[in-house]
Design a binder for these strands. Structure first.
Lengths: 242, 242
DNA sequence: GAGCGATGATGAATGATGTTTATTAGTGGC
DNA sequence: GCCACTAATAAACATCATTCATCATCGCTC
């Protein structure tokens, strides 16, 4: 028939190459348009394949999304783990975790959005690979806090998992503001702020907005004055009794 | 024809009643199935109207969702504001804000999910009514923190907006865990934990897990000893000079 | 209370998209 | 050079959100 007169062009790249082409295209389209606005057609065209071909490698649109985010997250996790090993000190470790996370969000804000918006809310997230990856990621902070509690550097009545929730929650809220184009998003500054707030805490006495540092300073001063006073006194007494 | 033999039944309830029926049905279906799984047909059937009727009152499916969440959020805001006025003391105020928010999440977890998942991520959220309502809601915490900084009860180097992000971020993370059926969700306990962590902070000295309280106690002790020592001394001197 | 226009409810038709499948191009063994 | 098998293709299909031509109902007029 007329049909067979038009020869069908067939793309015969090796499967790994086709898969990576599709995933790269999917990553681009998903991040540019978001999940529901992204069309399978868009992805197929950009990958240089035909719609049907995508379904040879991915069960459906959602699986494709999950695979894309997974790949991103894995890279992020491996990359951070290497550097993290070298950090010493609780403050520095907390700050490192927060800072690197903020950096990767700034590098790929749209992927974070996909993670928060499309992946986490689904019912099957809990059993998924991404859930475990994310747990591994956030658990580093819990380990740091636990160790710091054990050696007395952080209060023993703090819940490590709550610290995790506060820190990553704060990061997330800043991220949403960033995604909404509200003001700037400075990973250095935000990391400092979050780390300080977790590390030093907020409370003061009623009088004058003191910090832990100033409390320690006052205590030191008082101790020194005590020593300075008690010393001469004992000398005086010694003289008197002498 | 055969068609006209079947008389069309027409629903002639007053518009307000139809709107509230539709919104109630929409609320049920959205919370049960989530936004994308919820079908307009489902909502129409449950509301006892026909698909087309929904579009007389709502521009599209999304607007219906927004209106549903808006209604919920408004009620929540009004209700809380009344009680809040009576609370005295920073700790109690923070704890109240956190606690009531947790209670309303436990009452309607699925609506919180819709808010976080479907509403907040959209580009038009920033200019929306819900955005303003949410700002009003979270701004109470900022006001409390600002006032507390002004009167010296909280450190002056804390960022009120960061406190907001940490508190609501922590609430949100606990909510996700709750929605995933991970363990229990006890508003009283969580509210205490969050409030304490914000209010008292985490840091200690290197030696022995001291808290702000113990630091104050030590400082008080040192001050008293100082006074106890310097007082007799001045008396002695006074006597001497006399 | 019959006729008539306006209003708005109806549900079948439309269009946009994810997914499936019958068809056909390419590949390698014999 | 034929055949069987694999895999790519693109058209067909299914699933909704959304639209719209049709018609029931109401209020008004005479």
């Amino acid at each position: 028939m007329a049909r067979s007169a038009v020869k069908r062009q067939v793309n015969r790249l090796p499967p790994e190459r086709r898969i990576s082409d599709i995933m790269k295209a999917a990553r681009d389209v998903f991040t540019e348009k978001g999940y529901s606005e992204a069309l399978i057609t868009d992805i197929a065209v950009r990958a240089g394949v035909v719609e049907g071909s995508i379904y040879r490698f991915f069960a459906n649109k959602r699986e494709l999304l999950v695979k894309v985010v997974e790949l991103w997250f894995e890279e992020l996790l491996i990359q951070d783990a290497e550097q993290f090993a070298g950090i010493r000190g609780v403050w520095n470790q907390i700050r490192f975790i927060v800072h690197t996370h903020l950096l990767s969000i700034r590098r790929d804000p749209a992927l974070s959005r996909l993670m928060f918006q499309e992946i986490r809310p689904t019912p099957d997230y809990r059993g998924s690979r991404l859930f475990k990856l994310n747990q591994a990621y956030t658990h580093r902070l819990i380990d740091v806090v636990k160790a710091a509690i054990a050696n007395g550097e952080l209060r023993s009545d703090t819940s490590p998992s709550l610290v995790r929730d506060m820190v990553f929650g704060a990061i997330e809220h800043r991220t949403w503001a960033f995604l909404r184009n509200e003001g700037d998003f400075d990973p250095d500054q935000i990391a400092d702020q979050i780390t300080n707030m977790v590390y030093r805490g907020l409370a003061t006495d009623r009088k004058g907005a003191v910090t832990f540092d100033t409390l320690f300073t006052r205590l030191d001063a008082a101790t020194q004055r005590l020593e300075a006073i008690t010393e001469p006194q004992t000398k005086k007494r010694a003289r008197k009794t002498a």
